[in-house]
Design a protein around this nucleic acid. Structure first.
Length: 401
DNA sequence: ACTCCACAGGAATTGAGGGGTG
DNA sequence: CACCCCTCAATTCCTGTGGAGT
């Protein structure tokens, strides 16, 4: 076949990078109150006093990380004029760090020059802390602020959040004042913290509520203006994006993604104006790709369980008892020559799928002759599941047959 | 009111994997 | 080399649970 000519697109975007996740705007809209609180909480640093510990919570895409960047930049900048205050910021994204141990290793390595990094495993927890305190003492500043973004990923193991804020008080560190800024996407995380941590960490709490439709509209308008050429945004497009993002999660990131995708679709069809129809398609596409990514990243045995459920769904036999799903799963696993995991494990996998919204679980109880059990059914498009399973090399054999 | 089915799901344990120090 | 440390999934163990049947 002969290739199509490359031609310059109908100009829709002026600068599409403004809509990408990686873009950092230089101002944060609709968050004046939170920024004011934030600055206020950091005031002691400028006064030369020990910093307060700050805890930020709110869902993804509501401006927590961005405001941290802005406020701390300003703090550093303004501290310059005072000779007796020097602020050092240590920023760590704790995503995928699942224990206090891992976080402390990360912090330590962040402070150490390359070549002197410490291994992720093998040391005793206490040794890591000792090394960390030494390293903090060495820092050439009066204040150091540790920003622990997405700290909720450490779950219940919150020892580091106890140790770090009180390393000054117990004399482990004395030449540098230490402050901790914790950022969490998960509101429940704060409640699950142990009492001793709540005591020390939560001097100051700043809550970031989801954006409402109106706020999102303002944000999208300003970004849209920069991203698109004049007149490329059709009627109601911004409102639709904002309304959808507000309904779904109140996340600015989601709104921007939808807007970007809508523009992308318009461009794909060589149209010069983004219309409401593009937004509708964009919403579907964004949702679809999110589900797909998550599905693909599941472990093989979850795929097998899903495959088992899919077979029942294809024959209209859902909802189906977990026991039956397991029986079929066992059959599949041995057919593929994989170790057959226990009932309990698959049970956990199914709960996980249900938690993520890919399947629905319904509790049934037939008393003395049936007892209490769960029935599962698919909650997403069969075609999508089949598609994803086919892309898993090991499982694909089962799907076609 | 009481029994009892058939699980659900929390907690503790195990064991392989990747790594440290002296 | 001997001995210790952290991690993570999987497994084993065990208590909890809601309502049909009696």
């Amino acid at each position: 076949m002969s290739l199509q000519d490359f031609t310059r697109d109908e100009q829709i975007f002026r600068d599409e990078s403004v809509l990408r996740d990686s873009h950092t705007p230089e101002q944060l809209l609709e968050r004046d109150e939170e920024l004011r609180q934030y600055q206020n909480a950091l005031q002691p640093v400028i006064n030369g006093a020990p910093p307060k510990n700050i805890f930020l919570y709110g869902q993804t895409g509501v401006g927590k990380t961005l405001s941290t960047g802005l406020v701390l930049d300003k703090l550093k900048q303004d501290a310059v004029q005072y000779d007796d205050v020097e602020v050092e910021i240590v920023n760590v994204v704790c995503k995928s760090l699942t224990s206090s141990y891992q976080v402390s290793v990360r912090l330590l390595n962040e402070l150490r020059p390359s070549g002197e990094k410490v291994a992720k495993r093998g040391h005793a927890a206490g040794d890591i802390y000792d090394m960390l305190w030494d390293e903090i003492d060495e820092i050439n500043a009066t204040h150091v602020l540790f920003v622990l973004d997405e700290i909720d990923s450490i779950g219940n193991d919150d020892d580091i959040l106890y140790q770090l804020p009180r390393c000054n008080a117990n004399g482990s560190v004395d030449s540098t004042e230490v402050g901790v800024i914790g950022i969490s996407n998960d509101f429940k995380f704060r409640d699950n913290l142990s009492a001793r941590v709540k005591d020390s960490l939560c001097d100051e709490e700043i809550h970031y509520p989801p954006y409402d439709a109106e706020e999102l509209q303002t944000i999208l308008e300003i970004r849209g203006e920069k991203a698109f050429v004049e007149g490329a945004i059709g009627e109601n497009v911004i409102q639709l994006c904002a309304a959808h993002a507000a309904r779904e999660s109140g996340s600015a990131r989601l709104g921007l993604r939808i807007l970007y995708k809508a523009g992308d679709l318009a461009r794909e069809h060589s149209e010069s104006i983004v219309e409401a129809g593009h937004v509708r398609d964009a919403v579907e596409a964004v949702k679809h790709s999110r589900v797909r990514d998550e599905l693909e990243s599941l472990p093989t045995h979850s795929h097998l369980a899903l495959c088992s459920l899919l077979k029942y769904a294809e024959r209209d036999e859902t909802p189906v008892k977990r026991k039956h799903i397991y029986d079929r799963y066992r059959h599949y696993a041995s057919q593929l020559d994989l170790d057959v995991k226990t009932n309990r494990t698959i049970h956990d996998r199914l709960s996980d799928l249900s938690l993520k919204g890919f399947v629905t679980a319904r509790e049934k109880n037939e008393g003395i002759k049936g007892g209490n059990y769960y029935e599962y059914a698919l909650n997403i498009d069969e075609g999508l599941v089949r598609d994803v399973l086919q892309s898993d090399e090991r499982v694909s054999v089962l799907v076609d047959g």
